[in-house]
Design a protein around this nucleic acid. Sequence first.
RNA 1: CGGGGUGUAGCGUAGCCCGGUUAUCGCGCCACGUUUGGGACGUGGAGGCCGCAGGUUCGAAUCCUGCCACCCCGACCA
Length: 490
Amino acid sequence: MAKNLTKRSEDYSKWYNELVLQADLAENSGVRGCMVIKPYGFSIWEKMQAELDRMFKETGHQNAYFPLFIPKSYFSKEASHVDGFAKECAVVTHYRLKDDGEGGVVVDPDAKLEEELIVRPTSETIIWDTYRKWIQSYRDLPLLINQWANVVRWEMRTRLFLRTTEFLWQEGHTAHATKKEAIEETEQMLDIYADFAERYMAIPVVKGLKTESERFAGALETYCIEALMQDGKALQAGTSHFLGQNFAKAFDVKFTAKDGKQDFVWASSWGVSTRLMGALIMTHSDDNGLVLPPNLAPDQVVIVPIYRSDEQFDLVSKVAKEVMSELRAKGVRVKFDNRDTHKPGWKFNEYELKGVPVRLAIGPRDVENGTLELARRDTLTKETVSRDEVSGIVVALMDEIQKNLYKKAQNHRTENTSEVSTYDEFKEVLKTKGGFIYAHWDGTNETEEKVKNETKATIRCIPLDAKDEDGECMVTGKPSKRKVLFAKAY
RNA sequence: CGGGGUGUAGCGUAGCCCGGUUAUCGCGCCACGUUUGGGACGUGGAGGCCGCAGGUUCGAAUCCUGCCACCCCGACCA
């Protein structure tokens, strides 16, 4: 594996692509904008899935599965939803191939579908069509369902993990008896996403509301978490939508309340995708490769044996295995890499590239001295630790590295967050350092559009924790109640 | 979908303008030996429809046409 990661400052995109490839996470499949997620990359995704799934279930949600194909007619039921997705859908028109007589195959023109099927870009429509059958009474509510699935969006431009044609995600779809409850659910899920981002991914995020123009197609309110990448661009890491009664009305989902009156149910939907992998990579990695937070690392510790002879290998292995079971007993995920097909130096680089938080090396010298060599991925430092204390040290380190990564990301964000009061200042900051920029905005679509056209920066969100402060819109000078978050985004 | 670029072995590439021996080099891969505390070294070896399809030519990696894929920048977006 040739390591030639480009310096981020020179070409961030190239650096990102090479890192994804070299850390063995994913590769381009050659199928239009679709990637192959390789076993190592997928094991990280599985870890994310497992933690999120647990958090969903702890808050009363259940998993279910709905069809990949959605009849075209379902899409015409919620007008704004169509507008949002119609442009980017893959459509199934035929159901059979036939021999073309020249050793190839062609689509059989006789096998045309009466009604085309849309490969789901998101499942609101088919799920709400199903919910109509499931919901009759207030006793059936709330309905709290999540689906782990793949979706397809025919985007113009694709990018590994950040925007692939097909991507994996989870989509939660809930139905409630009251507006208040649906909004609470929407906010609760946003909090879960933020909590997951911060505690597991070690990525600080800003929670906020999208402006009208950035709102999900069909939603009354879109909440999001926004993270800042190392190159100063923002990445939307998760969204949670309050759908009001739009989908209930479109799909005629009514329930009878305690008082016998009928009403449409209130809804939310929320999702995070394999894009989180992109966020993870772009937040923590360095020029030596991926850096994984211990809470998500498939292997938190790798033990590399160093030896010349078989006798030495046996000696070293014995201690390594003891340390491994000691650590496993304390709940640490450990791998003992006893392959004799690669040399220690090669393994050191391999695990650095793959971002394993802690590496332990043990050789004959260590066995003699009762020590191990411990290397941290986050700081790239090495120290010699005592054999007897190693498991305690490692357990404490898991916590420390997790916190350190978060702190580093937080510091980076703080350093790259600016507050401006004039449009000139805004453009200047955008040009010289980028990052998050807080500024007053008059709340109009026109101003938002103007800033976007002139600077490429968009309003990432109206932060939930924004303090009230009267001011003037940096562009128009009209009154503004609070500052909003601008940035160039992925 | 618009602008720009690139497709040569698993990866990275030279050759292409100006057509002409057996397609270059490095990494990786295989065998043997020496090595093993930060990507080892030596010797030998395997691996190519030069993105695909046409065309021009005695002859095409090289010239022409079409297509496909990927990358970058826009517009779009999780």
